[in-house]
């Protein structure tokens, strides 16, 4: 067990963890940021997606010990004073069913739109292909990403 200094949602935090502890479990069990979800633990489902230096990253495989100096953003830190346009779009189109995977979907979408602010449908489908939704709210996720892009441009 060792001590690490992380920056999560703009705040500096010091954590105690084994060097192999994935960021996901540091967020959930140590920092009480439970919006980031566990789904598979092997980077296949996307439920655990967070931003590391602005880039969508699977937190279930990423040891927290290597993240000193990085800016980590979770779903809890996405909305600053008001909801992010992607969150607005999710609400406007009533996307979630059970809701469990949606934080990961939103984190993937926000990072994608930063890189590609004006995507076509095929690009949206490619970008979101790595995030599973067992309730299959895929149609609405696709439309919400397009709506957010439109609102942000």
């Amino acid at each position: 067990m060792a001590s690490y200094n992380l920056k999560v949602n703009g705040k500096k935090v010091s954590i105690e963890a084994d060097s192999d502890t994935p960021l996901l479990w540091v967020l959930r069990d140590e920092l009480n940021l439970v919006g980031t979800k566990y789904g598979c633990g092997i980077g296949q489902c996307g439920s655990c997606t967070v931003h590391v230096d602005g880039v969508a990253t699977r937190s279930c495989l990423l040891p927290a010990s290597g993240l000193e100096g990085s800016e980590i953003t979770t779903i809890e830190g996405l909305a600053k004073d008001k909801l992010h346009p992607v969150q607005h779009a999710w609400k406007a189109l009533d996307v979630p069913q059970c809701g469990y995977c949606q934080a990961g979907q939103i984190m993937t979408a926000t990072s994608f739109l930063k890189q590609n602010p004006n995507p076509n449908n095929e690009e949206i489908r490619n970008a979101m292909h790595g995030n599973l939704c067992r309730c299959a709210s895929y149609n609405r996720i696709e439309k919400a990403v397009a709506l957010a892009a439109k609102k942000m441009s």
Partner: peptide, 17 residues
């Protein structure tokens, strides 16, 4: 709209886990 929408999209603790 789903009455829990705000909690879901901002990552509030809702689930068993």
């Amino acid at each position: 709209i789903n009455v829990d929408i705000d909690d879901i999209i901002t990552g509030k603790p809702l689930f068993g886990l």
